[in-house]
């Protein structure tokens, strides 16, 4: 997974961007890379999709130039080690709890209430379980609800990216936490529905763009564009990718 195949033409400059699988599975990251490449013909942007923990590890080992993550606690440690030359929250989306339509009425309310109901009813829940930003957030939400689902028979970990985890949840008639964009991208193949959980700060999903220290000028330029230039075009991308307006929004 760490090995990458160079794919640019001769003389083109290569920038490796590692991003959480949510962003890659939703299609946003490739769309952004395409946009940047068409504006900068000499640059070849390679997108690697990994869980946020692995994205940061790739940055730590120098295998990636620009990182896009959504795991605040892990990001903090990375920044504390002085590994970032530039790091800012660039845009946000939100997390949604999705499940089979049959559970729609039963599972509504605040996120805490819904999680407590899932645990009490031993409703099957599929977790990423992979050190991704989504998984980190899910663990935080369970903690906030005062539940430790680890080891429960109804709680399953795939250890896979968002797309496959959604498929597993769909096929097993189970519930999962997903980043909205990844879910919308796959929704028409799935029977899952967004559960009516009242949004709150706990479901906000901020994406952080980080430029690893000591990278090329091209990498720095791409990182700056992600932070400053890209957010303005998000609503247009939302429409073309998902036919919806506000999946991804510029950071405040």
């Amino acid at each position: 997974m760490v090995a990458l195949v160079a794919c640019g033409g001769p003389g083109s400059e290569r920038v490796v961007v590692a991003a959480g699988t949510s962003l890659v599975d939703s299609g946003l990251m490739d769309a952004l890379a395409d946009q940047y490449e068409s504006a900068n013909p000499g640059v070849d942007v390679s997108v690697v999709g990994e869980a946020s923990a692995q994205v940061l590890e790739l940055g730590r080992r120098g295998a990636a130039d620009v990182l896009v993550t959504h795991a605040p606690a892990l990001e903090e440690a990375f920044l504390a080690d002085g590994l970032a030359e530039l790091s800012e929250i660039a845009f946000t989306s939100e997390f949604v709890l999705v499940g089979p339509p049959a559970l729609e009425d039963r599972l509504r309310g605040t996120i805490e209430d819904v999680l407590i109901e899932i645990a009490a009813g031993e409703l099957e829940f599929v977790s990423r379980g992979d050190g991704s930003g989504t998984h980190e957030r899910e663990v935080e939400l369970w903690n906030a609800a005062g539940i430790d689902p680890g080891g429960e028979p109804w709680y399953r970990k795939t250890g896979q990216g968002m797309g496959l985890t959604l498929i597993v949840a769909d096929q097993r008639l189970a519930i999962t936490l997903s980043e909205r964009g990844s879910f919308v991208a796959a929704a028409d193949q799935l029977d899952l529905q967004v559960l009516d959980v009242s949004a709150g700060p706990g479901l906000l999903n901020p994406y952080r763009v980080t430029l690893v220290v000591g990278r090329t000028a091209a990498a720095a330029d791409f990182a700056k564009w992600l932070i400053d230039g890209a957010p303005a075009g998000l609503s247009e991308l939302n429409r073309s990718l998902f036919d919806e307006d506000d999946i991804y929004r510029p950071a405040d």
């Binding site: 997974m1 692995q54 992979d130 795939t158 250890g159």
Partner: peptide
Amino acid sequence: VLIVGGNIRGETRVLTTAIVQETRQA
């Protein structure tokens, strides 16, 4: 096995999918 098994911990996780998984998590 990853596609049809789903690499679910304790249920369908085998050595090869576990290697992928652990590598992803560094």
